[in-house]
Design a binder for these strands. Structure first.
Lengths: 331, 331
DNA sequence: CTGAAAGCGCTAACAC
DNA sequence: GTGTTAGCGCTTTCAG
């Protein structure tokens, strides 16, 4: 709990001015090499490190890349791993910021504005809802919730994934297939909804509106929708959920209602977060290459920061069905 | 890429001084309510958000908690989820910083020094090697690599976990059991080594030094040690690795050497990172409650930041063996 | 080669 | 109630 040494302390101890210390530390020209040595010795002795904050206020560049998330949940954590991996051998430090506490709405703009002033040289936003932001730094969005944004974007093929999921259920023999969507205004949710509908139509089935609920990608909302759907006399024999968190909640609700998964109800999620394979029974889901998403975004951002024109400003990665234990033919 | 509005822009647009804007935005006393309204209207219109950096330079408090990691790998990502979960309903934003790029050694001190000046009100360090740091803010260490530190600490029972792992191998019938340690100076590694030795001793076995290698918790180093151990005529029939990353590398090496896991070689790891259950065959391991570790650290930190004395300044969480598919009785 | 001085955006005393 | 002033720790001209 001791005060950390500042540049002033170093200057005093070395008997030079703060300006000289700054130059010595940053390797600027115009300092006698023996002065540099003396300063550096004091720096080492005192354990001085320049304050990221103070430096970033003056210089326009910090060598730090920011990843802005609403929350550190499984999805964003996977993204982070991918970004970290991609940046491991770069010269950039990585700063992840979750700033949804101050204001639930518009965390993207808030976080970006608070950091982008100077703290980061570039940023990656994970599933932002608001994308009409003005930044002073290059910006890449991963799986943006609204669109089409005029922002470089990396996301997965939600439509194709939903198609695969629903077709799998169809092949298993299900005909009453429910869908728990995310929020109706979210892009990925809309695409997953479309894929679901398309698969049903292709199979010559008509969609029963009672089998489509909305869960906002949030357990609480999912619970409400799931309970309502599963209490019906003509309840579905399978449900496709727009993400794993939702699917896991559905499995939980089913258990409470005495409905056996997968015997009486098949459930399939989306994302394949680490938790999905650990539930009992393990969740069948559509795998989204989350770490790759993060790595691709990092590469795209690096290109942008170098002032180059990226090969593609809109990257879509494929999804893949991962059959596990929450799906089975209808009873 | 537009310049973000600063407090000066707001002041100009609202026809007041920057001081008044600051007061209005932060809800200080001494501002006419209609002035507040006018300022806030301009703030909304311009989309102004105070710069975290600039504010943190002046005020001594930011409402941000920092998590300092060497790297965003699976272990720290799990920790982060736990911290995020624990802080979800708090008034704190969360900032995770990976600062190992500037200097491989001593990232802890560097990161802490760079941020702690002002940016964060408290910090959690994940597996720090250097703990003799002086901070201006409360600090909690998760699974510190050296010790005993005079730092509040949260970690898991490495010794007990190693004991479980080795005994399991013993029960399976193995007698030639190898161990790939982390770095010899790391606390968790020492404890795991001790647990391993104790289990062997308890079973009346003498330890063969040739069956103990060092892997630094890093794939490359593990590879070297594993190749050497597995090329021996009297190679072990089972290996306990000090973490999952190491264990996964051993499995890979075994495959390359044509040694079948688990038929010809049993492997057991430590941590149970998400990736452990996804390998083929799935890794048997000792589960460390990583998210709980993060959550406990967050709670401890919060207590410290409130100026209270924590119930315990040294928390140890239990580990649990998770048998999967990389272990079997010896051929 | 070195230091004095200005200023990044903001907050906190203190005047007016 | 509101504005003026003085920095926070640092980098960067620009004199000396």
């Amino acid at each position: 709990m001791k005060r950390r040494p500042t540049i002033t302390d170093v200057a005093a101890a070395a008997g030079v001015s703060v300006a000289t210390v700054s130059k010595a530390v940053n390797g600027r020209y115009g300092v006698a090499s023996e002065t540099v040595d003396r300063v550096l010795a004091v720096v080492a002795e005192l354990g001085y490190e320049s304050s990221l904050i103070a430096s970033s206020m003056r210089s326009r560049t910090t060598g730090v890349i920011g990843v802005l998330v609403a929350d550190f949940e499984p999805f964003s954590a996977e993204i982070l791993k991918g970004v970290g991996e991609a940046l491991r051998d770069s010269r950039y430090d990585l700063l992840a910021y979750s700033g949804s506490h101050g204001a639930a709405e518009g965390w993207e703009r808030r976080s970006l504005s608070r950091l982008s002033g100077t703290l980061v040289d570039g940023a990656i936003m994970v599933t932002p809802t608001v994308v009409n932001v003005s930044t002073e730094v290059p910006l890449v969005a991963i799986d943006p919730h609204t669109g089409p944004a005029d922002l470089p974007t990396v996301e997965c093929d939600s439509y194709g994934g939903a198609l695969q999921a629903t077709r799998y259920l169809l092949e298993l023999g299900h005909t009453r297939i429910g869908f728990i969507a995310g929020r109706p205004d979210l892009r990925s949710s809309i695409a997953r909804d479309a894929g679901y509908r398309r698969a049903l139509t292709d199979a010559g089935l008509t969609l029963d509106p009672a089998l489509v609920g909305s869960g906002s990608y949030q357990p609480d909302a999912v619970r409400v929708a799931a309970v309502e759907m599963l209490r019906r006399g003509d309840r579905p024999t399978a449900i496709f959920a727009a993400n794993d968190i939702s699917a896991m909640e559905i499995v939980k609700v089913a258990a409470e209602l005495g409905i056996d998964v997968p015997r009486d109800l098949s459930v399939i999620g989306f994302d394949d977060i680490p938790e999905a394979s650990k539930t009992t029974p393990a969740l069948t889901t559509v795998r989204q290459p989350m770490q790759t998403l993060g790595a691709e975004a990092a590469r795209l951002l690096l290109t942008l920061m170098d002032g180059h024109a990226p090969a593609a400003t809109r990257v879509t990665l494929p999804t893949r069905l991962v059959p596990r234990a929450t799906t089975a033919p209808p009873a």
